[in-house]
Design a protein around this nucleic acid. Structure first.
Lengths: 149, 149
DNA sequence: CAGGATCCCGCTAGATACTG
DNA sequence: CAGTATCTAGCGGGATCCTG
């Protein structure tokens, strides 16, 4: 296939999976990662500034860092043990986080982003950021919408 | 307040809402937009290349465009009427899409992204794209994970 | 065509209690 | 500390029928 260019390959890669199709595996993957807890866990594990810009102020910057179960539980206010464990397991299975057990007494378990998890974190961080920075706009629109009703 | 710099204002804006807090409104907003159907609807309304790169091939590029209810229903394979209508209403209420009724016979209804919706579309497009482009990696990890179990 | 209204099932999130 | 196990209430979400 002498006609296969880089552009062709990119087109193929894009066409291979299509979340618009109900039967496509990527549809279910999209459903999994489109989740409040997934977003928050990934963001927590990613630290404050995951892909910090050019210059880094020591002390203000901490990229991806391992976190313990209890740490996560504390940072994700209101998450139930069940959801936290369940979501972490799913993320581990999908290769987004690693789970490390240190046989101390009592046992110490840490979770950390993988490279794959980091790549997703970069994008879901945007979702969380959007929610926080556009909250006022949304609230304003809701007010006028509800008023007209 | 002579000490209020641009950086301070940004810090304040970021601190105003925090999705890590259970009681924060942004937590619920995050839950709303972390949704399969929200992502797919916004992507559909955003067209193929929302923020196309430098040069644009005429004919291959079509940015945000209004779509009819039935068009959306067709493109989002497998979506139920209930979920489609319900999600569209929520998006309209939050000011992410506009709903336009043209009194033809039968009636024609079109949905279109607002500026706010467009800004969210840019980020959720990344989520959808991630799912499609990393599907193979995830499947591979699942296989090894399930094998070890 | 673009929904509204209902019914109803599934299953999932959350609370609680227990364990290595 | 870091979970597992169990139970249940609630609702997400699909199917179905109907309408302007």
């Amino acid at each position: 296939m002498a006609t296969t260019t880089a552009a062709d390959k990119r087109a193929q890669a894009k066409a291979e999976y299509d979340a618009f199709l109900a039967a496509c595996p990527s549809r279910r993957l999209l459903d999994r990662i489109s989740d409040k807890w997934v977003t928050l866990i990934l963001c927590a594990l990613g630290g404050a500034h995951p892909q910090g810009p050019g210059h880094t102020e020591p002390g203000t910057e901490h990229g991806p860092r391992p976190m313990r179960y209890s740490e996560l539980s504390r940072q994700l206010a209101g998450v139930s043990q069940k959801m936290l464990t369940q979501t972490l397991r799913a993320l581990e299975r999908d290769g987004l986080v690693t789970r490390t057990v240190t046989p101390t007494v009592p046992v110490t378990v840490t979770y950390e982003l993988t490279g794959l998890g980091l790549s997703l974190q970069q994008v879901v961080r945007g979702v969380k950021g959007w929610a926080e920075s556009h909250m006022d706009d949304v609230l304003a629109h809701r007010a006028t919408y509800d008023a007209d009703a």
